[in-house]
Design a protein around this nucleic acid. Structure first.
Lengths: 332, 332
DNA sequence: TTGTACGCGTTATCAT
DNA sequence: ATGATAACGCGTACAA
């Protein structure tokens, strides 16, 4: 294994000169630089990543902390990761994954990461707005980005405009004539769900439409619970001529229930999902949905994080990434 | 930030003793050990990860190299990652992700990783059996695991028994009475697809059934191409009373086409997917599929890799993870 | 422009 | 049982 000392020796210069040349420092004479580079190439020299990390106090890697393994299977998550990955790579830093199975595991993982300096920063995903994890990062002045919205204003976040997302979808449905819309929402604790609920209600208020008192169903976000909430209301005789679901999976699962009850989509019930997962692209009928630009969210998270790491820019930022309605068959 | 020197000083011992105590070496007297541990705790000492890496020549992290970003969105991938993650964590090592967008990027990523010693090993995913990437790892005697099958016998692999998977599914369909089965296969270059094709054919041979000459369709594995291949044969009048798809997404996409042509599932056409993705759990009808035990595959990959890293056990291993048919509505 | 010397934090070797 | 010291490989003041 060839070190920078080997290069220096072989090129007949000192280690520091070799180091300068290798790192493209301008104050080394072109001739010696060429000599050194030639030697480095011929000896297949590549600087050790850890050694560099130690001396610079930087690991060149960030960590994605996602306590809820379940949600990994969505296309949203993977597109987000792709964006994060690409964004980090622009700064020559890698992405490492942590998927602790419970809250305690998440905490110890984060604390170890910070104190052992395993990563330069952390991206929180599927974490509640007031999660103690955020305080841990804040207390250590550790670079971080939360995907979603936070209670404390000093947390750096990137998010969709969830109020507007729900507003847009609900408006679209109301404009088509739907008057009994069921909103299969996610867990209330996650924060962005209440923003969506508000958007849902505001759209109704705009038109003076009174939503059914049971129109917003908070569930755990799984398809099974979404199905249960829908079936429950159907059984209770709650009028439903449209469904907005927290995710495309829940939407498709809801369509399954509707179909079994002999309800036609979109004729009897219009359906809208959120996320633009592949699942809605191949459902029958094809699912209308909202593209949350997951890749863009990931890229933005990387930008915000790398900025803290490199510029030491610690003042809180909150960035919003735009969304886009995708009208397909299920809401015609 | 507190280093081991601080501990040593505060405890009134030498650095080496402090190090031994912290690492639980038995040859330090209980009394001094207690003293040192108390000091370490009170100073909130945690050893630096990079420093340890430098001194030990080990990064305590492995890399997952997945050149094909597209395939990340499947539940298969995410369950695999979860298994890999958990398996690696048992050895206190993390998982970092690399998703280069093309073959060249993959090669440079791998070469840098090896030469800069960024990771202790690599897991190859969605890589062809004869991919030059494998030679790179082999030439550097770099710990590695390929998910799938390889041409060179010295590549360490973990895989499903793809021959048997196809055999099992085809047998099940033939047993139900299907006689004109279309196999919407993946890209031929990926290797495991031909194993599956063979299993498909063998099941036919067992019963003396002659498959249609166009019964095996090699596609790029996307839903769109699967749909195209199916529609093409339907248009050409190829008889089809069952479809086996390379993935659940392709299966669901195929059902979409069949439905549009007025074909009932499973009455007119039985459908089988592979992977056990969520998408098939909420389709109408619910999709029969094969559980490839993705989590288990990930765990096994981690085991094989960590074994090479820690035991320096380099002799080639090939491990097979069992699968399981899941009968749902689409193949009744 | 180049070289010397030291720090980064840890573990390992070799004395004592 | 404990301590001094040398690696590990790199970057970088500081000096020349």
């Amino acid at each position: 294994m060839t070190t920078i000392r080997d290069i220096a020796r072989a090129a007949g210069v000192s280690v520091s000169t070799a180091s300068l040349a290798v790192n493209g420092d301008p104050r080394v004479r072109p001739a010696t630089r060429a000599k050194i580079e030639a030697v480095a190439a011929s000896l297949d020299y590549h600087p050790s990543h850890v050694a560099r990390s130690l001396s610079q106090g930087r690991t060149w890697s960030i960590q994605l902390l996602n306590p809820i393994e379940k949600t990994m299977s969505s296309g949203f998550f993977t597109r987000f990761v792709a964006g994060l990955h690409d964004g980090a790579n622009l700064h020559a830093t890698g992405v490492t994954l942590a998927a602790p199975s419970n809250a305690e595991g998440a905490r110890t993982t984060l604390e170890r990461m910070i104190r052992e300096r395993r990563a330069d920063g952390v991206v929180f995903m599927n974490v509640q707005p007031d999660d103690p994890l955020l305080d841990v990062a804040l207390n250590h002045a550790y670079p971080h980005v939360l995907v979603g919205s936070a209670v404390r204003p000093d947390v750096v976040t990137v998010d969709s405009d969830n109020h507007l997302v729900a507003l847009d979808v609900t408006r679209a449905l109301l404009a088509r004539g739907s008057r009994s819309i069921l909103f299969l929402n996610g867990p209330e604790a996650l924060g962005f769900t209440t923003a969506r609920a508000n958007g849902f209600l505001e759209a109704h208020a705009e038109l003076g439409v009174e939503p059914h008192p049971d129109a917003v169903a908070y569930t755990d976000g799984t398809a099974a619970e979404g199905q249960r909430a829908l079936a429950e209301r159907l059984d209770a005789g709650v009028p439903i001529d449209a469904v907005i679901a927290i995710s495309d999976f829940v939407a498709v699962a809801a369509m399954q229930i509707l179909r079994k009850r002999g309800l036609a989509i979109p004729e009897d019930v219009r359906v809208y999902g959120i996320n633009d997962d592949d699942v809605g692209r191949y459902s029958v009928p094809m699912l209308s949905t909202v593209d949350l630009r997951a890749y863009e969210l990931g890229r933005t998270a990387a930008d915000l994080l790398m900025n803290q790491v490199e510029e030491n820019d610690t003042h809180p930022a909150r960035r919003i990434v735009g969304h886009r309605l995708i009208e397909r068959e299920s809401s015609a």
